[in-house]
Design a protein around this nucleic acid. Structure first.
Lengths: 354, 354
DNA sequence: TTGAAAGCGCTACCAT
DNA sequence: ATGGTAGCGCTTTCAA
C-alpha cells in the first residue's frame, strides 16, 4: 500500500518487464541497432503496458544533441517578429527541431543573458536578431563554442556566420527617391532604435544593422540630390507607441514640420497615422507616409498606406533552413542571403504640399 | 599538437585546475552548499580561465527540473496569441523559466504531438490553448504525469486544471443585445473554428471552448428576443484570410444578406472589412461590424471598428503566473480565472438599414 | 542478435 | 568545510 516514487518508467523498467537486457530494450525504444522481431514485439508491448515515455533529456546527455534551436528576437509581440518566428518554427518542426523562444527587448544585456541561457540548455543552434551590430562578442562566443548561429534581419561584418537580411538600403533609397521626385524636401525617418542621448548625428549611432543601412540609403540619396544636413530629420527612440506618439506630435507641431515621414516598422507607422489624424493633418495632402513592413492592416486604412513589403516569413524560413542545413553538417563557409523587398504603392504618398 | 576533443569543460575539469574535489567545485559552480571563501575564489578563477559553462541538461537530469515550460498555441502569427505569449514569456522569464513554443495550427493531432514532444523534453509545466475542448485525453495524461498544466483562453469541463479565460459568453450576449436593439435581425457570427462538413448546426459542433461560449451567448439572446433559427447565421471555417474572404463574399452577395457581422477574431474582422469594401457595402450604413480582439489597427480604419476588448496580455500573464505558483508548490486545488472583457464602441455599428 | 558495462555532466548523500 | 561516490536515463562500445 505504500506509494512507489512516481518516477516515470525507464528503459530498465521496460527491459525488466520484457525479460531482455537494458541494452536490447534501449535499441528498440531508441530505434537503433538491430533486434529480432520477437524481441521487438515483446519490448514494444512492455513499453505500452508501462506507458513508457522516452526521456529526451537523458538522450540529449549522451548524444550531445538536444533537438532544440534557440531563437532570440526583439519582441514576439511585434508582427514582424511573430511572422518571422512562424517561418522559423515551421522549418524547425519539419526538420524535427523544437524552438526555445526568448525576447531580448532589443536590449543587449538581455540578449547576452538569453544566449548564455540557451547555450547552457545546450541548444543545437541559434537564430538571433542581434539588437546591436557592434556588440557581438557573446555571439562570437556562441559561434566559437561550435554551436551554429544564424543571424536574422540584421547582419554583422564582424561575424562570419549565416545571415539572412533584406535589401534595406536599396529599399530606403527607392523610397527616398520617390519622395524627392514628388517635391518633398523635409523628409523624416523615424525608428525605434535609440541612442544614449536620444539624438541622431550619424548612421554610426545606429547599432541595428537593418535600420542603419536604411538610414544610410536615405541620407545618401538626399546628399546625392544636393540636400544637406538631412541628419536632423532622423528621429530615434520610438520604442513604445507612447514614445512614438510624443515624437511624432512634437515633430508635426514644430515650426518647420516634415512633409513626409518614413516609418521604420508597422507599429511606428500605425502611430504616425494615428497622431497625424489627431493633430488634424491629412494624409497624403498634408503629410506623406511610407512604412516599412506590409502589415495586414495597411491596406484598409483611409488612405491605405504605401509600404515596403519585406519577405518577413521567408526571412525566418531561410534563416532556419540555413541553420538546419548546417546542423546536418552541410555547408562549409557561411552564407549571406539578401532577400528582395518591394514597394507597394498605395495612397499615403502624394506631392509635397506647396 | 593533436586536437583534444573540443568538449566543453566540466566541473571535473574545473575541479582539477582549481586543485579541489569535484564535489567542492560543483558546490561553488552550482551555488549550493557551503564553501570557504578561498576555495570559492580558486574555483571561480579556474572556471573563468577554462570558460566553463554549466550544462543545464545534466543539471536537469539529476534535479528533475528543466527550468522550461512548454507552450502550445494555435498560431503565433495571430496577434492574439503573440500578445498572450508575450505575457507568458515575461512572467516565465522573471520566474527563471524558459519557454518552448509550439504551434498547433488548431489541429488536435499536432497538439497531441506537441504535448508528447514537450513531455519527452521534460518541461516542468505546460500552457496549452486546447484546440478542442472535447478531445483532451492527451492533456489529461499530461496532468496525470505530474506535470502541471494550465489552460489558456479555452477551458474544458473535463479537465480539473488551472484555467484562464475571458467572459466570452457575457461579451457575446452584450454585443448581440446591442445589435438587436439597433434593429438588426440578420446577424452573422463568423469563426475560424470548423466542422467536418463546414456547416454549423448547434454549438455542440464547436469544439473551441471560447468560441462555443460566444455562440451560445449569441444564440441565447436571439432566442430570448424571439428570433428563431439563428443557427443558420453562424458561419464556420474562416481558417485563412482566403477562406474568410470567400465566405464573407458569398454571404454578402446572397439574396438575404446579414445586416451585421460579428467576427470571432481580428484577423477575420480585417477580412470582413476588406471584403465589404470590395463588394461596395458601406460600414456601418449597409453593414455593421463588431470584432473580437482590440487589435491595434482597429482604431485607425474608416470607420474605426467596434470591438470586444479582451485582456489578452493578462490572459497569458495570468496563466503563466498560475503555472509558476503551482511549480513552486503553492496552490492545492485548481483555479479557474475569468477575465473581464469590455466593448469598445467605435463607429462600425449603426442601426440596421431599412 | 543480444548483453554487460562504461560514461555523459551534474547533484546529493554520507563521511570525514 | 571538503571529499568520495552513487546515481539520473540514456547511448554506445565491446564481447559473447
Amino acid at each position: 500500500m505504500d506509494q512507489p516514487p512516481p518516477r516515470s518508467p525507464s528503459v530498465a523498467d521496460v527491459a525488466l518487464k520484457a525479460g531482455v537486457s537494458k541494452a536490447t530494450a534501449a535499441r528498440v525504444l531508441g530505434g537503433y541497432g538491430t533486434v529480432s522481431d520477437r524481441v521487438r514485439d515483446a519490448v514494444t508491448a512492455a513499453a505500452r503496458a508501462l506507458d513508457y515515455r522516452p526521456n529526451e533529456l537523458a538522450r540529449s546527455m549522451t548524444t550531445g544533441r538536444s533537438g532544440t534551436i534557440g531563437v532570440v528576437v526583439g519582441d514576439i509581440e511585434n508582427p514582424f517578429f511573430s511572422l518571422a518566428v512562424r517561418g522559423i518554427t515551421d522549418v524547425a518542426r519539419q526538420a524535427g527541431f523544437t524552438v526555445i523562444l526568448i525576447n531580448s527587448g532589443e536590449d543587449v544585456a538581455s540578449e547576452k543573458a538569453a544566449v548564455r541561457t540557451l547555450l547552457a540548455k545546450r541548444v543545437d543552434g541559434l537564430i538571433v536578431s542581434p539588437s546591436k551590430e557592434s556588440d557581438v562578442e557573446h555571439l562570437q562566443e556562441a559561434a566559437r563554442s561550435g554551436r551554429p548561429l544564424a543571424l536574422l534581419d540584421r547582419g554583422s561584418e564582424a561575424l562570419d556566420v549565416d545571415t539572412v537580411i533584406a535589401d534595406d538600403r536599396y529599399a530606403a533609397e527607392g523610397v527616398t527617391r520617390r519622395l524627392l521626385s514628388l517635391g518633398h524636401r523635409r523628409i523624416a525617418y523615424l525608428t525605434a532604435c535609440d541612442t544614449p542621448d536620444h539624438l541622431f548625428r550619424t548612421p554610426a549611432d545606429i547599432n541595428t544593422g537593418s535600420v542603419r543601412r536604411r538610414i544610410e540609403g536615405f541620407l545618401g540619396v538626399c546628399r546625392q540630390e544636393g540636400l544637406k544636413d538631412m541628419e536632423r530629420w532622423v528621429h530615434v527612440g520610438a520604442v513604445t507607441p507612447d514614445d512614438t506618439r510624443r515624437i511624432v506630435t512634437a515633430m508635426l507641431q514644430a515650426g518647420e514640420r516634415p512633409t513626409a515621414i518614413i516609418a521604420s516598422d508597422s507599429v511606428i507607422g500605425l502611430e504616425v497615422f494615428k497622431a497625424s489624424r489627431t493633430i488634424g493633418l491629412a494624409i497624403p495632402s498634408d503629410l506623406s507616409l511610407v512604412s516599412f513592413h506590409d502589415a495586414d492592416w495597411t491596406s484598409v486604412t483611409s488612405p491605405p498606406v504605401t509600404v515596403v513589403r519585406q519577405p518577413v516569413y521567408q526571412l525566418g524560413e531561410t534563416a532556419a533552413r540555413l541553420l538546419v542545413e548546417r546542423l546536418n553538417g552541410e555547408g562549409a563557409k557561411s552564407r549571406r542571403v539578401i532577400l528582395q523587398t518591394e514597394v507597394v504603392e498605395r495612397a499615403s504618398v502624394a506631392e509635397a504640399p506647396a
